[in-house]
Design a protein around this nucleic acid. Structure first.
Lengths: 177, 177
DNA sequence: CTTACTGTACCGGCTGGACGGTCTTGTCAA
DNA sequence: TTGACAAGACCGTCCAGCCGGTACAGTAAG
């Protein structure tokens, strides 16, 4: 009665994100993830020989998806700036009230250095956006405001109403030009 | 060799913040905090009968300090808006590269609900700022950009250079009017 | 075709250690 | 005497990582 489809890796990664979101970042144990993924602990450890490797996999997966989504957005609308695409992507990401990435807190608790790739990615993204604009001040405001939006979503903070969210996005797009 | 008359409570709170910052949020154990505070475990548990109470104390302390600082800023410069005061306060808070509040991650791992008072505070602050301005769009941008700045500081992300930081603050103050 | 061998993917019990919380005993100042 | 701790042994629980299996796929000799 072995599972025919092998790709346990992705199932495990998804399960880890689910557990962190639903049971809280403090409850992300290997057993919980394995159980959620329909895999034994041994099977989990086979795919990710250590918890740190699992966290690393989570980060890499996240970054890969993010980059893919960003490329798709910028490609599908050539007439607008990359900054606008980034704003819209982030607005969509943050619209639904899914923290969706609270596993990040588990990773930080494990070791803050796990965020290094994310920081590097953000830095690289900002550099790329800088090349496209002449108004650095406006770019920084937009970039940081999006960062704020993402952090609110991450912390599951619904400080903004839906109308305010839309107004914010519209205002940002106006500034971005 | 007892401490003469030092309020252990504050020492413990400060020690907890220190441990989380230096050893990482995942290493914030009662023993580590007690040792750092120069207090025995028994003494710690006398002041904070449970780890949850300690986290709660951390949050309350943080909020109290924040409100005090904000009131001081707004009071000392009556001719400028509360939003400007908030921007300047946050800029100063985030300038020095001190995460200073990574204990927040420990609190989240313990129980995400510990952030509820912080969310309420933020919401209340935004409401107060809304009453002062006519341009809601600009306010939201400033508020979120500051949130972004604070999250960068929290995650110990130095994506922005010092010059960019200054430019951002100047641009925000211009928008804030 | 069959037997024997090899590697892959996974199972699940176990252990050693860390941690939160309790409890007891002691100390010293007011 | 009491209140505010110090000191730390102890307990129960949780959890990461380890290890000895197991099921199956391929493969290749006989």
């Amino acid at each position: 009665m072995r599972a025919p489809r092998a790709n346990s890796r992705e199932k495990i990664l998804a399960a880890a994100a689910d557990v962190a979101r639903e049971a809280g970042p403090g409850s992300l144990s290997l057993e919980a993830v394995a159980s959620r993924a329909g895999v034994s602990k041994g099977g989990l450890l086979y795919n990710f020989p250590t918890k740190a490797k699992l966290m690393q996999g989570l980060v890499e997966n996240y970054l890969r998806d993010f980059q893919k989504a960003l490329e798709a957005r910028t490609a599908e609308a050539r007439h607008e700036s990359a900054l606008s695409a980034y704003i819209k992507l982030s607005a969509d990401d943050c619209e639904r009230p899914k923290p969706s990435a609270s596993w990040i807190f588990s990773a930080i608790a494990e070791d803050p250095d796990f965020l290094a790739p994310i920081k590097a990615f953000k830095h690289q993204l900002l550099e790329r956006l800088k090349e496209e604009t002449s108004d650095l001040g406006s770019l920084l405001i937009c970039f940081l405001a999006i960062e704020g939006l993402r952090s609110m979503n991450l912390f599951d903070s619904d400080v903004l109403s839906e109308d305010e969210h839309k107004l914010l996005v519209a205002s940002l797009l106006k500034i971005a030009g």
